[in-house]
Design a protein around this nucleic acid. Structure first.
Lengths: 239, 239
DNA sequence: AAGGCAGCTTGACACAGATCAAGGCCGCGC
DNA sequence: GCGCGGCCTTGATCTGTGTCAAGCTGCCTT
């Protein structure tokens, strides 16, 4: 079967409240009733199956997205195919703002994903005279930037073991915000994705997981990892 | 002489128009006469000598800065002293927004630097009901984020030679925006700064410069580099 | 002019992580 | 239940970049 780049299904946006358990975390989280209804009217709720593209680098950036459900990988490619994952997007995250008229990176779903999609024009018109909304966008952008800077430190100056540990801790903390604190960290992305996020090869990631398990810091479980010694683990991730 | 961490001089902000040749590029670039005067009243113009700290990671973030003149390095440190430079700030750049109450990185001057300093409270009160200003801040943040993502690709997936070439091209283009296009790219930062920006050691940076010179792509000149073959050079930086 | 020192370059060697290659595990379709 | 393919792990070897150690250059001080 040929790979379909089209979203699996859409719904027209009214009566989709069930999708929005993450609304308090999302871009629209502070809108009140009436404004939110107006905002909803601009949205298309779109559902993607596994491994579909939401948008691609260099395409005209005609829409922005609020991730409602599922996980997306955001990445850039070099001409020869080397890939750098610049982030994993979780529910509540806001995607697609670009400093130029084209997207500066690509995004695709990992498992199934649901988004609120807004066309750029109507979206900009909605926010342009709503300072609350603009402040919120600023907050989102500032947080993203700070995460990106942490990642630069990781990519430029940490060893493989530190990279993997820091990744697991960071991921665990982001999940905790959504799902609460847990002992086992679920890893919906594959080893290759983790490697491309950390600037390593898949073999090094695999070996490092094994090493951390041998050192009794984690246990590898299907689709995830259980952290055994959070104290020692956080220390490794920090230093 | 002990190293002084205090700014070398300040002026009180009225009649400092001469400092602001970069105003069209800066955060305040779209304010009109009256609003700009009100904005100026919030600013302290501060001058720093070489290698002074504007602010440091984990300090309470009580001010934001618009860089007027000179160059600053922005960086993060690991507990053991490893350093990652996350960017070089040029005139017009806006510094110090943090997602938490504390700065998430440190900034210090390279040569002499002049800034407009705004205390957080008054600054936030000024922008909070000015959508134009908020939109501009969004633009700044989005551009910064995009640069950060480019840098992640560089740090995670490029070879030493590609890193140095991409750095020189990126730096040349940023300078061009301020000073116009030139054949020789001035490098006010030292080799160690370049190394810490690119996730390399100073020796590797030095060897790579030498290699690029041997290959007749550049000529090393005092405090800079002359690009001999822009075509071939841009290709190396891109791929 | 001499001395000192900070910043840069160069060389020899070491090693973390890449590359190449093989094999294991597991879920899925038939 | 069997074979296939995707994903992951493991081993052997290679290599780009780091580390360590000199030495060079130009500038500031006296």
């Amino acid at each position: 079967m040929p790979h379909l780049a089209f979203p699996s299904s859409t719904c027209d946006g009214f009566r989709c409240a069930t999708h929005c358990s993450v609304r308090p975390l999302a871009i629209c989280g502070e809108l009140e009733q009436l404004e939110h209804e107006e905002f909803e009217r601009l949205a298309q709720h779109v559902r993607y199956g596994p491994k579909e593209a939401l948008f691609s680098e260099d395409e005209v950036a005609d829409a922005v997205y609020s991730l409602v459900e599922g996980i997306a990988r955001l990445y850039k490619l070099l001409p020869d195919g080397r890939r750098q994952i610049i982030g994993f997007a979780l529910p509540g995250d806001f995607l697609g703002m670009a400093p130029s008229p084209r997207y500066s990176f690509s995004a695709d779903s990992i498992g199934g994903v649901t988004v609120c999609k807004f066309f750029r024009g109507p979206f900009l018109r909605f926010i342009e005279n709503r300072p609350q909304m603009l402040m919120r966008m600023n907050g989102f952008a500032t947080r993203e930037l700070s995460l990106a800077q942490d990642q630069m430190l990781l990519l430029g100056r940490r060893s493989a073991e530190e990279k993997v540990a820091a990744f697991l801790v960071g991921w665990r903390d982001r999940l905790a915000r959504l799902e609460g604190v847990t002992k086992t960290v679920s890893l919906p992305m594959g080893r290759q994705d983790i490697a491309d996020f950390l600037g390593l090869t898949i073999e090094t990631v695999s070996r490092t997981f094994t090493k951390l398990e041998r050192e009794k810091l984690i246990v590898i479980v299907p689709d995830g990892v259980r952290v055994l010694d959070p104290k020692r683990f956080d220390a490794l991730a920090a230093a």
